[in-house]
Design a protein around this nucleic acid. Sequence first.
DNA 1: CGTCTGTGAGACAGTATGTATCGAAGAGAA
DNA 2: TTCTCTTCGATACATACTGTCTCACAGACG
Lengths: 194, 194
Amino acid sequence: MLRSNDDPRALRSRAAALAAATELLVEGGPENVTHATVAKRAGIGRATVYRHWPDQQALLLDALAGDVRPLLSFDDSPVRDQLVFQAEQLAHRLNQPSAVSILATVIQRAERDEEARRLREEMFGQADEDLTRALAAAVERGELRPGTQGHARDLVARIIGPLLFERFLHGVHLEKDLVVSLVDAALAPWLPNA
Amino acid sequence: MLRSNDDPRALRSRAAALAAATELLVEGGPENVTHATVAKRAGIGRATVYRHWPDQQALLLDALAGDVRPLLSFDDSPVRDQLVFQAEQLAHRLNQPSAVSILATVIQRAERDEEARRLREEMFGQADEDLTRALAAAVERGELRPGTQGHARDLVARIIGPLLFERFLHGVHLEKDLVVSLVDAALAPWLPNA
DNA sequence: CGTCTGTGAGACAGTATGTATCGAAGAGAA
DNA sequence: TTCTCTTCGATACATACTGTCTCACAGACG
């Protein structure tokens, strides 16, 4: 279809279209992202949008993919600090007005769309493995009780879950003290002196 | 517009349309719920759908409203049992394949639609007040430490949040032992012997 | 039985969608 | 620069969809 991915003209119109698609998604929901609206907003031809994305699903998912990079990542520094930092980063991103629209769209599409499901898993899939490793290292260092490394996913759920609940279902702004309190509560059962 | 709400013919076509709308929402997402598709699925005339719901938003939200009754309610029996029971009920409802589509749609719409926001608050708004009362009663009985009643919403977030996270972002089936574990973890800081 | 009123079917104009074509202009090589 | 290739925006076009209206019909109710 297109000669290549490296033609500056193609890259330019593609980038403009994706930026426009994200804007339109946040402003009016997924059904607001059509070939016509994207073309108009991006200042490019309607046919050009069809050339890049023959169907609307692909266009929307490409736009989503640009905004949904992995949300968490861990290394081997002290676990509590990492969790607080990462959860704060995530809270900051969730506080963006666009985040709810984008995440809710991914979740909704994932029910019926394989590509969206892949995208959804990309968000937290890596986090489980990384955190498992980080927890194992922490157990070695005596920061946590043995066995903790088997509960990485559970920890993530107990920290991120309440954040999502507050943000998605109550629409509140996520504050730092909530994040800290959630991390400590989730970690409490695994502290060695317990 | 319509003479009344009690004409059996109007009630019948209205009910058929709402049932069809919910089906179509679950099958193909919100953009699949149009006057035309609903009319066809419900076996009624397209004009009839327009008569009941002049715009598509109203139709979709009416369908959602039928499926999103309050999700939690509390009385004055022992708190832990109540929380476990209510959270199990909720988990059971979230396990329905349709629940994710419906909830995600409400959340998404709530970003831009006043009516959807009202609907979203209906789900958990009452729960906070009820649980606050139930917690106060439990404190009176010595089940929980004084001050607990000020943290009803926090408790809900720490129990429901992880459930939503597991169901929405990992697509897993919610099991009873997870529910119990979440309730006990959320309650732990407020037990009197701590 | 007679009068309402909601209904389904269809007609209709206006709009949106998807595709094809065309000349213009940017990109890259000689 | 000049030449060639590719993408571009604009436009035209057929088709599908939307929203509104009309009308004959049948169910509801007295």
